[in-house]
Design a protein around this nucleic acid. Sequence first.
DNA 1: CGCGTTATTGATTAGTCTCAATTCAGGTGG
DNA 2: CCACCTGAATTGAGACTAATCAATAACGCG
Lengths: 240, 240
Amino acid sequence: MLLESSSLTTGTGRAHNPCEECSVRGDAICASLSPVGLETLSHLGRRVHVRRGQALFWESEESVLVGNVLEGMLKLSTMTGDGREQIVGIVFPSDFIGRPFGSNSHHTVTALTDATVCVFRRGAFDKFVETNSGIEQALLRRTLDELDRARHWMLLLGRLSATERVASLLVEMVERLDGANGKEVSLPLSRQQMGDLLGLAIETVSRAMTRFKQMGIVELPGGRRLIATDLPALRRVAAG
Amino acid sequence: MLLESSSLTTGTGRAHNPCEECSVRGDAICASLSPVGLETLSHLGRRVHVRRGQALFWESEESVLVGNVLEGMLKLSTMTGDGREQIVGIVFPSDFIGRPFGSNSHHTVTALTDATVCVFRRGAFDKFVETNSGIEQALLRRTLDELDRARHWMLLLGRLSATERVASLLVEMVERLDGANGKEVSLPLSRQQMGDLLGLAIETVSRAMTRFKQMGIVELPGGRRLIATDLPALRRVAAG
DNA sequence: CGCGTTATTGATTAGTCTCAATTCAGGTGG
DNA sequence: CCACCTGAATTGAGACTAATCAATAACGCG
């Protein structure tokens, strides 16, 4: 249940600043930093590897960590009192996770694929932000974007039918995994997780998928693989 | 001496900064400003009065304005292609509205009650923020809170039953309108709007309300008035 | 190749939406 | 001040969507 720190490995690099050759150097909030700021930050962070299915912060536990996703994809989720789960966000490389500035957002962060995250203790990160206002603005922009995404998802959850929701998710996945018409992508989500994200039962998700297959707008070559053979049509279904 | 403050406020001499006696001075993002910053900002903003039902920015139109709510309550909403509406947020006095930094969030802002908003042209506001990093952090905190709220709402929309949703809304309304057990509050939302917020049909909302009345945990003395006679019980229903 | 897990498919049920009919509240004009 | 009118809210009946329960089928892994 609890995070096993033994399974988490710390990154290397001491002489050279490891941030310089970070895979998300140009996209994450660190992009706004000067070389000096970057140097300081590099001493605060450490790389953590998480295996698929592993939780990163535990819900309702003091969320002491914040960080940037370097590789892989993770889900943010909450639960109702009686155990129903809702995924409230999917994070991709260069996305920021965690809640700076004291308060706590009560979300579980779980790796959907094997992932690498550059983490900071929140206190140290907060202090660093105070003296580097560039990063603050980067964080603000990113948070505003997240807010827009969350609100867009509210529309989906509140007003779209099951079929429309599944189509929307497939379209978004194809886009974010840079697929195209006829190009195969590998979904990072199980059917159960798709259900938890869309507010649907697993069977409902499955049925929608087979319906799309029968309509000839997607192919499902087994497992989590997906080919959108008629992306415009899928988009039309998603639109509502 | 020459200039009279025209339509907007005051009545106390022009040497005095109108922001000083603003109703949300201590709570809005302006709270973080120095007297000098406040002085500058006061020249950029103007007060706008909106009547109940009036829209403030129009969806998909270039959202040129941002601002602080001074009085009243407003809703943020989006629509599907075929006209289904979803309310994605309710804003209260001291809340910030609008999307700074270029991009556009495509939300309609409509007054739920008569309201007063302190608005800024976005370009001017953005520029002001760049030279006043205090306001940036205030905005960031506020946006992080909004994000948490939106994600909490995703749980509600994705996983709670109709009854649980309505109970949740009533609890939240009682809290934000500082009601208590047995204290009457006046809901700012019509049944239709409650439905648009909860992702439910108007009839379903109505039925849930009468069920609560029959259970003896609320009273509905007509109109939009509400008395939670057993708030703990209502909370229990909401919990799910 | 067999086993456990995950996904699909089917039958039934529960919950919510839709359509339709009153009832109620609030504002208007006589 | 009251009767009326209009929009909002409630209530009821039936239709439909998606959840649940249950039984295969496909996959992934040792």
